[in-house]
């Protein structure tokens, strides 16, 4: 099967700065892929290269098999991009904006689909409002609609929920899930690890222009993250048998690490045998944030 997006040894240099230092990855059709990384890691640069907004210094990207430089017309038809910045053209209304975008992609008489997209994004009541008059959240919805007017099989959302209120975030998440169910490949960059964990089946992590992790969300969570057990103990000391599990302590508060739930019993047994009483107890499941922090630290 032809990958939805295939990135091969992509490098991008701005003078002495290497924004991307040889990134390769492949995103399969129908995937919900998360691209994570701190600011300046190269996420937006990589997306821009895939969208033809930036030229790679070396390597290449294909969208549904079409080279983004050599076969740029086919590649761009396959891709819908929701940019990070809230950009808009202040001269036009929502409907005009969407009609133009549709026309740029060579589509005429696309009114029915435009109406449908506006309906799904709750934009219908604003169809004839000038872009200037819309709230930030509404402008964000228009950006999403613009990326969808040509029904692209691959949709890239560059931090779609940055600075978005809870309600719109939930609405966008649901909408993105539905697009994915309808067969669209989704690529999402985000700072919100919770978002990636919730939506993405596979995750790539970038740091300083390099891909430092690439795996399914589940594998990443299992490989890198155990359970975190937070305890407050009566005697302010940890039985020696439990010392190897200690991550950190503050007074009578102890942070222990467990590989899985079965180890909980051993910990409780150890505490009972030492005559310790538990004053507070909190067991946290693995989360992507911990994975992220560890991977980033490992490559520091």
């Amino acid at each position: 099967m032809v990958p939805a997006i295939e990135v091969q040894n992509v490098e991008k240099r701005y003078g002495a700065l290497r924004a991307l230092a040889g990134v390769s990855l492949s995103i399969e059709p129908g995937e919900m892929f998360g691209l994570l990384g701190p600011n300046g890691a190269g996420k937006t640069t990589l997306i821009s290269i895939a969208a033809g907004l930036t030229r790679a210094s070396a390597g290449g990207v294909r969208v549904m098999g079409a080279d983004v430089v050599g076969e740029y017309r086919r590649a761009r038809r396959m891709l819908g991009v929701v940019p990070q910045e809230l950009v808009f053209d202040p001269f036009f209304t929502v409907r005009e904006t969407l009609r133009f975008q549709s026309g740029y992609f060579g589509l005429r008489d696309n009114g029915d689909w435009i109406d449908e997209v506006m309906h799904h994004l709750d934009l219908t009541s604003k169809a004839d409002a000038n872009m200037r008059t819309l709230s930030g959240g509404m402008k964000r919805r228009v950006l999403v609609a613009q990326a969808l007017v040509h029904k692209p099989p691959v949709i890239v959302l560059d931090e779609p929920t940055a600075g978005v209120d809870v309600e719109l975030r939930q609405a966008l998440w649901n909408f993105v899930r539905r697009l994915n169910r309808d067969g669209h490949t989704i690529v999402l960059t985000t700072h919100y690890l919770e978002e990636a964990e919730l939506l993405c089946t596979r995750i790539g992590m970038l740091k300083a222009g390099r891909l430092v992790a690439l795996d399914s969300t589940r594998n990443l969570l299992e490989t890198f993250s155990g359970l975190q057990l937070k305890l407050r103990l009566s005697r302010e000391s940890l039985p020696p048998a439990l010392e190897p599990r200690l991550v950190s302590r503050q007074g009578d508060r102890f942070n222990l690490r467990l590989d899985d739930y079965t180890e909980l019993e051993q910990v409780l047994v150890g505490l009972r045998e030492a005559g310790e009483a538990i004053l507070e107890f909190d067991l946290q499941p693995p989360d992507l944030e911990e994975v992220f922090v560890r991977i980033m630290n490992r490559h520091a």
Binding site: A51, L53, R73, R76, V87, Y104, F105
Partner: peptide, 13 residues
């Protein structure tokens, strides 16, 4: 304003 992106993303030669 950044809206040049809307003309750069589509397959316009």
């Amino acid at each position: 304003t950044g809206n040049i992106i809307f003309m750069l993303l589509p397959p316009i030669s």
